[in-house]
Amino acid sequence: MTGTKTGTKEPTGTEELVELASVSKFYGNIKALEGVSLKVDAGRITCVLGDNGAGKSTLIKIIAGLHQHDAGTYTIQGEEVRLGSPREALDLGIATVYQDLAVVPLMPVWRNFFLGSEPTKGKGPFKRLDVSKMRRTTREEMLRMGIDLRDVDQPIGTLSGGERQCVAIARAVYFGAKVLILDEPTAALGVKQSGVVLKYVAAARDAGLGVVLITHNPHHAYLVGDRFVLLKRGAMAGSHLKSEIALEELTRQMAGGSELEQLSHELERAPVPAHLGEGA
């Protein structure tokens, strides 16, 4: 074992699953990510916050095995790794749920749940899907996380956006993920649906998974997060434990702090255009 658990500021009792230390990524001469450090513990949620273009997706791609980092270290359960493919990441227990790539809309829920890892029974030409097990498991797993499907045969496209995310998360949990990476799971959802997903994220955390929640919504992040990493233009803009930071401060930093203040200043002073003042 190469790695040691260094610098654990956190109260003991949690297992460190993933650690990035000063990770950088270059695309040619463009710095996509520079010196980003992040820790994911079992049963904890690490939120990665940042505006568009802050480097969030590059960070996910490195953790998920789609890209390799150019500098720094990436350790999974104490062992330094350099992932060559998403499959490798999956085998090491790192599952990624993408916002728009989660499911195949026209396929029934149970087929989606097991897609790519279908259980079979029988031998030779009679090797077939274990349909009853697939249906039963899908129903049970969804129920376990608080979603009561009325019919596992319905096309998954008929579920709401939040429920679809939940199926994708439940699938990752069922197939033994230790670390769950969620790419903007609430971005396209309404308030109620976001709540459903966040509840589910919390359920995954309670089940002992380490979660990386990527979002640009500090309110959602603050509801469930234990640790917040702020990205700005590919670099770390801050890393806080929940106890160290209040929502207002997080929102302020996330929104660009002084930039936002300046913007609000400008907006306040903006003169009312003449044609609007007359009343339409």
Binding site: P86, R87, L101, A102, V104, P105, L106, L115, G116, S117
Partner: peptide, 12 residues
Amino acid sequence: GGGADAARAVGV
């Protein structure tokens, strides 16, 4: 046919 990218992402 129904979602090639999603399928690829889960190892199909």
